[in-house]
Amino acid sequence: MAPPAVFAEWIGGALAHTLGSGTRVSSVEPVAGNSRQTHWHLTLSDGSRLFAKSAPGGSDAFAAEADGLEALRRCSAFAIPRVIALIEEAGHAVLLLEHLALRRLDVASSKRFGEALAQLHAIEGTHFGWARDNYVGASPQSNAAQAHWPIFFAQHRLAPQFATAATKGYRGMLQEHGERIHDKIGAFFLGYQPKASLVHGDLWSGNVGVLDSGMPAIFDPAVYLGDREVDLAMSELFGGFPNSFYLAYREAAPLDPGYEARKQLYNLYHILNHLNLFGASYLRQAERMAKTLFDHLRN
């Protein structure tokens, strides 16, 4: 991570080129990032604030994120950080976003969040996928257009993750169960034909917040057109949201009775991704989920 003064000097020149010669950075504050990116709060000379993400290498991941944020802005029920600029110089990329002052969801804001998510999912397309590939975390995510949801999810979500797991040495029963799930995935969709809804794609508590006004906010998307249940499933994976969120969503957009079985299917994708990104601590969970799904297919 570059020292704040060095980053301020570098980004100041880039901002002046992008936003005008009168733009100056008066202060830079590093904030928690991740293993791939460094995050910063920037205060400009006019007192306005920006949120910056920087990373070495090309800008494709940031371009995908900017594309996803613009897609989410189609839903006026959410606050979405505006994309200010995407800068790439000397092998380094920076994504500049509007700074949103956010707090964690509480009971009241979670109810509003559930209602807003139902509105997002009401935005629909004619096929599954997206106009460009993007990323879920650091992992590439293929979004080639497909008319049939089970085929899309099997080919463009589960299959790449199982293949990556195999190359990392995670074989055995995990792969055997994975093959069965892939081949028989249609059994999870008997009598259920999901619509191609606009989904966030990576909806866990770390990617949401609320403004002081009570308006919910979402960010760090992995958007595509898919079964809306994928967002609901992931929202339950890592700690979940307050119950008022789920009650409000189900009141606005009731779920199909088969959701409980498909929830495991959808969350297997994210656990496999965590296995491939972060290692064997996720192996047992991935194996248990794959076996549960395998057993469901046998019954």
Rank of each mutant, 00 (worst) to 15 (best):
E229S: 07
V223I: 07
G206L: 13
G186K: 01
G258D: 04
D231H: 03
E179D: 11
L255C: 15
R180Y: 10
P221G: 11
L211N: 14
F219H: 07
G209Q: 09
R250V: 02
P216I: 07
N273C: 04
D212P: 14
R288H: 13
F219M: 10
G169E: 09
G239Y: 06
Y224T: 07
L190Y: 00
L255K: 02
N267D: 04
F241T: 06
N207E: 11
E251I: 11
Q264Y: 04
L275R: 05
T167D: 14
N243Y: 03
Q285C: 01
Q155E: 15
E179Q: 15
P254D: 12
F241E: 02
Y259A: 15
R262T: 12
E260G: 02
E229A: 04
D212H: 13
R284T: 14
K168C: 12
L265V: 05
A154L: 04
G191W: 06
G169R: 12
H156Y: 13
G279Q: 08
S235Y: 01
G178T: 04
G178D: 05
A187C: 05
A261H: 12
F219C: 09
Q193E: 14
F219A: 10
G279M: 05
T164P: 00
L247W: 11
V199R: 03
A290W: 07
F241N: 08
A280E: 09
P221D: 09
R250A: 13
H274P: 10
V210W: 10
T164H: 15
L247G: 01
A163D: 14
T167V: 09
Y249L: 11
Y246N: 03
M215V: 15
R288N: 15
A196T: 05
M289E: 12
D212M: 06
E229L: 00
E236G: 01
H182Q: 09
I271G: 05
Q175P: 11
G178Q: 06
Y266L: 05
G226C: 09
Y192C: 13
G206Y: 14
R288M: 10
G186Y: 00
G209M: 02
M234G: 02
H274Q: 02
M215F: 00
I271C: 06
D183S: 12
F188L: 04
R288I: 12
L237D: 02
Y170Q: 14
D183R: 15
H274D: 05
L203G: 12
Y259Q: 12
D256Y: 03
A187Y: 01
M173C: 07
F241P: 02
E260F: 12
A154F: 06
S281E: 06
R171T: 14
E260V: 09
L211S: 11
P254C: 14
P242T: 00
G279A: 01
A261V: 11
M234F: 09
T167P: 01
Q161T: 07
G214Q: 03
R288T: 13
L198I: 01
A163Q: 15
L265D: 08
Y170G: 04
Q175I: 10
G209R: 04
Q155P: 04
